Deep mutational scan, measured.
Amino acid sequence: NITAAIYDEIQQEMKRAKVSQALFAKVAANKSQGWLCELLRWKENPSPENRTLWENLCTIRRFLNLPQHERDVIY
């Protein structure tokens, strides 16, 4: 289940792992930094009809659900 909290989790994970938006986007969703920036802007007004947005957030959720040491190896 995806909630608005995922946006904060993304920010916290980037700080914790000391990774850039570009690197996080690449490893978590195989996307660009610009894409992640755009995604983070949706926090203010996520559209329930935007299926692509929710699919991408689900992809990021799966990455964030990995154990921390696995995420660190991927970075």
Rank of each mutant, 00 (worst) to 15 (best):
64 L>E: 00
5 A>W: 14
67 P>Q: 05
26 K>R: 12
1 N>E: 11
51 R>C: 10
44 E>C: 12
23 L>P: 01
49 E>F: 07
28 A>R: 00
30 N>H: 12
45 N>D: 04
49 E>K: 04
29 A>P: 00
16 R>T: 12
5 A>P: 13
63 F>W: 09
60 I>W: 01
26 K>M: 09
15 K>M: 10
8 D>S: 12
68 Q>M: 06
27 V>H: 03
50 N>Q: 09
55 E>Q: 10
75 Y>R: 08
67 P>E: 14
24 F>R: 00
73 V>M: 09
35 W>V: 09
29 A>Q: 02
40 L>F: 08
14 M>T: 11
7 Y>F: 09
56 N>P: 13
7 Y>W: 06
65 N>A: 08
2 I>K: 13
17 A>D: 07
18 K>D: 05
4 A>P: 14
66 L>P: 01
68 Q>K: 08
51 R>A: 07
5 A>Y: 15
36 L>K: 01
70 E>Q: 15
68 Q>E: 04
37 C>F: 05
19 V>A: 12
49 E>Y: 09
2 I>P: 01
61 R>T: 08
3 T>W: 08
71 R>Y: 00
71 R>I: 02
6 I>D: 02
48 P>E: 04
25 A>N: 02
72 D>S: 08
16 R>D: 07
5 A>R: 13
4 A>F: 11
34 G>Q: 12
21 Q>Y: 01
13 E>V: 00
1 N>M: 15
47 S>R: 15
5 A>K: 15
51 R>F: 09
52 T>P: 08
71 R>F: 00
32 S>K: 12
70 E>R: 11
41 R>D: 15
5 A>Q: 15
61 R>V: 14
11 Q>H: 14
69 H>S: 10
25 A>S: 10
49 E>I: 06
8 D>Q: 06
47 S>W: 07
26 K>S: 09
61 R>S: 10
22 A>T: 13
9 E>S: 13
30 N>V: 07
34 G>E: 12
55 E>R: 08
63 F>C: 02
29 A>S: 09
8 D>P: 06
58 C>D: 07
32 S>N: 05
1 N>K: 02
12 Q>Y: 09
48 P>V: 14
40 L>D: 06
59 T>P: 14
58 C>Q: 10
24 F>N: 01
60 I>A: 06
8 D>N: 02
36 L>Y: 03
51 R>H: 04
68 Q>L: 08
64 L>C: 04
21 Q>C: 06
71 R>V: 01
44 E>M: 11
52 T>D: 02
34 G>M: 14
1 N>I: 15
53 L>H: 11
7 Y>R: 08
75 Y>T: 03
43 K>L: 10
24 F>W: 03
8 D>I: 15
53 L>I: 11
66 L>Y: 11
25 A>T: 05
33 Q>H: 15
48 P>C: 05
40 L>G: 04
39 L>C: 02
13 E>T: 02
24 F>C: 05
29 A>E: 01
24 F>T: 01
35 W>F: 03
34 G>K: 11
31 K>I: 07
10 I>N: 00
15 K>N: 13
43 K>A: 07
19 V>C: 06
62 R>V: 07
71 R>E: 01
22 A>Q: 05
20 S>R: 06
7 Y>C: 07
29 A>F: 06
48 P>L: 09
54 W>L: 10
5 A>D: 15
59 T>Y: 05
49 E>A: 09
71 R>N: 00
